[in-house]
């Protein structure tokens, strides 16, 4: 089964929300039963990024790279980068991987590679 990050599409006006909301930000007349769950695209352009040299204590690595990506279709997502020399505007493609490990829990999220 292919893993995805899902967004919330308003059934009335079509506005896509990521992360989810209880009321549609565009038509304002929704409740969360009125959203359709749609997978986010995985390809996009890197909008901005940072290399964090003091990641939170559960990461046992010296640095992590984080970025905001504008996906095909215009949705945006924050994710981790696995790219050697990231540059603003470069094409990237996401994979769903473990992005954070806690004592009894693993979180899956989007990790971007150079496309």
């Amino acid at each position: 089964m292919e893993l995805n990050i899902y967004a919330y599409k308003c059934k009335r006006c079509g506005e896509i929300h990521y992360p989810y909301k209880t009321i549609c930000k565009k038509c304002g007349e929704n409740d969360h039963n009125e959203f359709e769950i749609v997978p986010l695209p995985k390809k996009g352009k890197l909008l901005t990024f940072t290399i964090l040299h003091n990641p939170p204590s559960d990461y046992e690595v010296p640095t992590i790279s984080l970025g905001i990506v504008e996906l095909e279709g215009g949705q945006r997502i924050t994710g981790q980068l696995n790219i050697k020399n990231p540059k603003i505007g470069m094409n990237v493609e996401g994979k769903i991987e473990v992005v954070r490990k806690e004592a009894y829990n693993k979180h899956l999220g989007m990790v971007f590679y150079q496309a």
Binding site: T50, L52, N54, P55, L66, I88, V99, R100
Partner: peptide, 21 residues
């Protein structure tokens, strides 16, 4: 919590991304 925190996003990293742009 779901769209930022799980990726290891901290306030300095949001500031870093903001500053770069």
């Amino acid at each position: 919590p779901l769209a930022e925190y799980i990726y290891g996003v901290t306030l300095p990293s949001l500031a870093g991304m903001f500053a770069r742009l």
